[in-house]
């Protein structure tokens, strides 16, 4: 096909070195986007840098009361971590809506994020959860919010030589939970027409804090602060949910395509965000 090379570095430094020395080098995590794109000729990797042999990029560990998930950890591995599933059920579900079991046994959230598709399923849930990324590069390490990674469809803000080592989820306060819903034409194996993730913290029946993330309604996944503000301080009564829905619709700048018209997406985003908020509330109350 091409004259690419393949490397499986064992350390972060080695991976950064490989990425820095070749502008056409590409990280391969699960390969479920990259190999498809390379085969179609849409990307021409000069080197495949496989991060699955870097121990810091594999597995899930407790971190500052929350969790650090290695960027090469496949989505199905999240399901086996009971504490993660209890704290962030919506985020784990979002990652496990991707493709088929075969795909999820390889696909990673890091790849979902860095592939920078506007419709990536785990990204609105990560945004709602307030997740951050540990990024390693030639000038060391930095921690940035997930919202800062995708910059346009298929583009990220990562500089040459940089890659995501792990995704960090904050501690889930008591009374807190999350949910993610998407609309697709089939029940499995399709690309989101709209995705909505909501995380919130309830205290005595009142919403103390909230975050709302949307996918497939703009060039990148969105954090909608106005939608969260409509929920905070309320009991999630109909007025609050209506106001949130309006804020969600106002934030949408979708495209028309074969999967859905712009007006369908705008309307559905509000409906899904509302349902997700109620699921998150019920989950928070059940704890």
């Amino acid at each position: 096909m091409t004259s690419a090379t393949y490397h499986a570095p064992a350390s972060i430094a080695e991976a950064v070195g490989l990425l820095s020395s070749d502008p056409a080098a590409r990280i391969i995590a699960g390969g479920t986007d990259l190999i498809v794109q390379a085969r179609a000729g849409r990307v021409k990797p000069g080197a495949y840098v496989d991060i699955k042999r870097i121990s810091a990029a594999i597995g899930i560990r407790s971190f500052e009361g929350g969790f650090a998930i290695g960027a090469a950890t496949p989505c199905t591995a999240l399901l086996e971590h009971a504490a993660l599933c209890a704290a962030w059920p919506g985020m784990v579900e979002a990652a496990n809506l991707i493709g088929s079991v075969q795909v999820r046994n390889r696909a990673t959230m890091g790849g979902n994020l860095c592939n920078a598709s506007p419709a990536a399923d785990s990204v609105p849930a990560l945004i709602a959860a307030g997740a951050t990324c540990l990024v390693a590069g030639p000038s060391g390490e930095r921690v940035i919010p997930v919202t800062d990674i995708p910059s346009a469809p298929g583009r990220t803000s990562l500089a040459q030589g940089e890659f995501v080592v792990e995704i960090r989820l904050p501690a889930q306060p008591s009374g807190g939970s999350d949910a993610y819903l998407r609309a697709i034409p089939r029940t499995e194996m399709d690309i989101a027409v709209v995705g909505a993730g909501v995380s919130l913290v309830m205290d005595g029946g009142v919403c103390k804090s909230a975050r709302v993330g949307l996918g497939a309604v703009a060039p990148t996944a969105l954090l909608v602060e106005a939608a969260a503000a409509a929920l905070i301080g309320t009991t999630l009564d109909d007025n609050a949910l209506d106001a949130m829905g309006e804020a969600v619709s106002a934030a949408c700048k979708p495209i028309d395509d074969k999967r859905g018209t712009a007006s369908y997406r705008t309307h559905t985003a509000a409906v899904l965000a509302r349902r997700a908020a109620l699921i998150a509330r019920d989950r928070a109350g059940a704890k």
Binding site: Y6, A8, G31, V36, R39, Y48, Q102, R106
Partner: peptide, 29 residues
């Protein structure tokens, strides 16, 4: 299909099923 959609290439890799069309042979080391 060669794109992860059909599953005709399904194999198990370290005990988990995957589409072998979306795995680089070099990764199997």
């Amino acid at each position: 299909c060669g794109s992860g959609d059909c599953g005709a290439c399904t194999i198990s890799l370290d005990g988990e099923m995957v589409c072998s069309c979306l795995v680089l042979a070099a990764e199997a080391q």
